[in-house]
Amino acid sequence: MQRVRIHYFKGEALQYIGNLDLHKVWERTFRRAQVPLAYSQGFHPQPRIHQACPLPLGFTSQVELLDFWCDSDESLAELQAKLEKSVQPGIEIQTLTNIPLRSPALQTIVESALYQVILPEDCDLTPIQAKVNQLNGAESCLRERRGKQYDLRPLIKELTFSSSKPASITMRLMAMPGATGRPEEVLEELGISPFVVDVVRTDLTLLSIPEETETNA
């Protein structure tokens, strides 16, 4: 049994495919590639695949991560070649790495995510620049999400504006369970419709994991 982490790009072709559906897309990719996934125990055994944090619909990403467990001792290069042949348009596999079997679940180790927002050409940049400065200087930024009040400000770790063409905004947002900043909410705060911009997730910061003594069995 080995555990492998895939780093892949999620492109436009899959930008409207949510996390649950993406899970199925991957399951079928493994089946087509004839990579024997390990199954969970129990009455409804499920293939063991874990994804990192969900990407909002409509966005693309250069840092999607997925862990899978498989009952095969094929090398990473062999696995990668098989998967690349079976993968669907919208997924571009970058690298495969071995992960210690017992290292913590992917979902629990993402700390923050970096997003790059490309602004449309005809956009008035001055008010945006001002709003970025304002939000950066603010102590807090109270908003509502599903009827509950929360503070967006501490979820923004970094927010910068660049006017060099094409004009863009870069934001690093917290992505921990219970403390997740959403790019579309920051955009709303800046008075930008999320429907007119291109948003790309460009980095994920993982919490540093304490040294694993155990390696693959």
């Binding site: 072709a13 899959l14 409207y16 559906d21 897309v25 409509g58 669907q88 348009p89």
Partner: peptide
């Protein structure tokens, strides 16, 4: 379900 309207299927 915007995925209904975007094609791109395998």
């Amino acid at each position: 379900k915007p995925g209904r309207y975007f094609g791109g299927e395998f």
